[in-house]
Amino acid sequence: MVSAQSAAEAGQASPAAQIKIAARDVTISYSGVAALSGVSLEVREHEIFGIIGPANAGKTSFLKALNRMDSFTDGMRVEGDIQFDGVPVSRLRNVYALRKRIGVVFPLPVGLPMTIYDNVALAPRLSGIKDHAELEVIVERCLTRAALWDEVKDRLSSLGSLLSGGQQQRLTIARALSQQPEVLMLDEFSIAVDPVTTMRIEEVLRELRSEMTIIMVTNLVQQAERLADRTAFFLGGECIEVGHSSQMFAGEVRDERTRDYIEGKFG
C-alpha cells in the first residue's frame, strides 16, 4: 500500500504531512432538507484534494461549510465537526481570520465592479498594505499566476466586470491568490474557461501546491485525475470514498459506484 503511493505523493513535503482540514461526521441541511450527511475526511497540507461527483452530491455545500459561508445562506445548517489547523470552525472568535486564510473561486466568475488592478489589490489593501510599489508587485505576480497578466497588463485601470467570462474567472483566481491563502478552494473553476487556459491554470495549481493546500471541486473526472493527489467521490449527499487519485483512477476502488462514475456509466 505504501509503496503504491507513487507519483502523487512524491511531490508532497513529507509522507506524514500534517492535516490541514479535518471533517468529522459533517451533516449539512437546508431548511431541514439534508444535502450532505455524515461526511468524514481529512485534507493534508500541500496536497491537491479533488472532490468529484454528480450534481446535487453536496460538493459545493461542503466547501461552503469549510469557510463558514453558511452564515450567508438562510436556513443552511452545519452539524458535526470541522477543524482548520486543529481549531473547530464552528466556535471561532473571529470568523474573518479564517476566511482570510481560505481563498475561494466560485463556479461563475465574479469580477468586482472596480478596476482590474483594484480587484487584485483589494485583499492586500484590506490587510493594511498601502505601499504602491509593493501592491504593484503583488498584482503583477497574482495576475501572472492566474495566466491573465499578458492579456490585461496594458489596461489595468479598466473595469474588472467588463472582462470576458473566462478572463473574469482568471481575475477571480488572481484575487483569491492575492490574499496569500493557506487553502485555496476552487469550485468548478474551469466552467467558463477555454481548454487552453484551463491547462495553463492547472499548471499553476501544480506549482502552488508547494505554498498552499488546494481543494478542488470538479465535474470533470479527468481534471481530478490530472491534478488531484487524492480524490473524494461524493454521491447523493454522501462521501462514498476517498482515495489516492493514482489508484482510484486506475480502477482500485472500494465501491463499485465510484468505478461506474469514473467510467461514465452514470452521472
Partner: peptide, 22 residues
Amino acid sequence: SAAKRPMVARERGDFDRRNADW
C-alpha cells in the same frame, strides 16, 4: 521572491484572534 511581503510568523492554529478589524 523579494516580492513576498514579510508575514507575521503564524503559529499553527493560532489564527483565531480578535483584531482591530473585528
